[in-house]
Simulated scan of single mutants.
Amino acid sequence: MKSGIITIFTLCFSVAVMARKEEELYYSKTQPANLKEEKVTRVGFYLHDILSGKNSSAVRIAHDNLTRDANSPVGFGSLFVMDDPLTLGPEIHSKEIGNGRGMYVSASKEMSKFTIVMYADLTFTTGKFNGSSISIFSRNPVAEEAGEREIAIVGGRGKFRMARGFVKIKTHHIDMKTGDAILRYDATVYHY
Rank of each mutant, 00 (worst) to 15 (best):
V40N: 05
K113D: 08
A152P: 00
E144M: 12
G165C: 06
T115R: 01
G131C: 10
T123I: 13
M176D: 01
K113I: 07
T188Q: 08
L66M: 06
D175I: 06
V167S: 09
G179K: 04
I6E: 14
D175A: 07
Y185W: 05
K54N: 14
Y104R: 00
E144F: 12
P85N: 04
N140C: 12
D83Q: 10
A33Q: 09
S14F: 15
E23P: 06
S57R: 05
G4Y: 00
N65Q: 14
A58P: 08
I8P: 00
N99S: 13
L79I: 15
T126L: 15
T125A: 08
S135M: 15
I8Y: 13
E22R: 13
L47T: 01
G158F: 02
A163T: 09
D186L: 13
S106K: 05
I61Q: 09
A19C: 12
L79Q: 04
R68N: 12
A120P: 15
N71I: 03
T87F: 09
A163C: 10
L122T: 00
A19H: 08
M111H: 02
I169Y: 05
T125V: 10
P32Q: 11
I50N: 03
G100Q: 03
L51P: 01
V189D: 01
M118T: 15
H48C: 06
R60T: 12
P85K: 04
V15A: 10
S72F: 09
V167I: 14
G156K: 02
S78A: 14
F9W: 05
K21T: 15
N65I: 14
E148C: 08
I116C: 05
L88C: 10
I182Y: 01
P32V: 10
A120M: 12
F124N: 04
A62R: 13
R139M: 09
R20D: 09
S14L: 14
T115I: 08
V81E: 08
A152G: 02
N140E: 10
H191E: 03
I97S: 02
D69T: 02
L11A: 15
Y27I: 15
G98L: 09
G77T: 09
I151A: 04
Y190M: 14
T188E: 12
A19M: 11
A16L: 11
I153K: 00
K170Y: 05
A187W: 01
D186E: 14
S94I: 03
G77C: 05
G147H: 04
R164L: 11
I153Q: 02
K113F: 15
T30F: 14
A70D: 13
A33C: 11
V40H: 04
R184H: 13
T178E: 06
G53A: 07
F80T: 04
R20G: 03
K168W: 07
L79H: 08
A181G: 07
K21R: 11
P32K: 14
L66Q: 05
A16R: 07
E23R: 09
D121Q: 09
Y104E: 00
V43A: 07
F80C: 03
I116G: 01
V15S: 00
F13E: 05
R60S: 03
Y104Q: 00
T115D: 06
D83E: 13
T30L: 15
V105G: 00
L88V: 11
L79C: 09
E37I: 11
P85T: 07
V40R: 04
S133Q: 08
T188K: 07
Y192L: 10
V117F: 14
G4R: 06
D175Q: 06
A120T: 15
